[in-house]
């Protein structure tokens, strides 16, 4: 067997371990050390052929106001400062090209820039759920949240600008728990 074939095999094995392990380490660090932030969101239910069912999480607000005179192109990375309100739900308090020293800053991307309020793209856009409860989730959201004051909250961990979605909650309860109860009642 030629040595280069062993090298290629070693590269394949290393890449196959390195890619998921890097992701795991990065996300575990944010989950264990990151600050907890709650953001409003909406969450319909699409499907990914490779990774299964998920709720498409659309974090709110989806606009940030950059300081006057700061020019950014679409796709550029900026930072937003997340500040919790009296109800514990965070909003964007500030936006800048680099994170400030105080508070919790998250890295986001600029969608396009043509007005004062810059549309942003959050790094989180999906919450994976079990195949059984996924269709129920969509139905439950449509039926129960239309006229409610209690919003769906995305519980996000933030560390060094990086964000990891930990859970979705409604009225302080885990979204998954509510759905399981609903399913049990239906059965």
């Amino acid at each position: 067997m030629k040595s280069w074939m062993w090298i290629a095999f070693a590269v394949a094995v290393l890449a196959q371990w390195a890619m998921p392990l890097t992701q795991i380490l990065r996300h575990e660090k944010v989950l264990t050390q990151g600050a907890l932030v709650k953001l409003r969101c909406t969450a319909p239910d699409p499907y990914d052929p490779l990774r299964g069912r998920f709720l498409r999480v659309s974090l709110q607000p989806d606009h940030a106001k950059l300081p006057a005179g700061v020019e950014v192109e679409s796709g550029a990375t900026i930072y937003v400062k997340l500040l919790p309100g009296e109800d514990g739900v965070s909003t964007i308090a500030d936006a800048a090209l680099s994170p400030g020293d105080d508070g919790v800053w998250a890295q986001v991307k600029v969608r396009y820039n043509y007005s004062d309020a810059t549309p942003i793209e959050w790094p989180i856009d999906r919450f994976y759920v079990n195949e059984v409860i996924a269709p129920e989730a969509d139905k439950w959201l449509a039926e129960n949240l239309r006229n409610r004051e209690a919003p769906i909250l995305a519980e996000v961990r933030v560390l060094d600008g990086r964000m990891v979605l930990e859970n979705l909650s409604v009225d302080g309860r885990s979204f998954r728990e509510i759905l399981r109860e609903t399913l049990t009642l239906v059965k």
Partner: peptide
């Protein structure tokens, strides 16, 4: 591929398919 999929699923990682 399955390994990458489960990691993406566990950590609710974004990105297009």
């Amino acid at each position: 591929t399955a390994g990458l999929a489960i990691v993406a699923q566990i950590y609710n990682m974004g990105g297009t398919w």
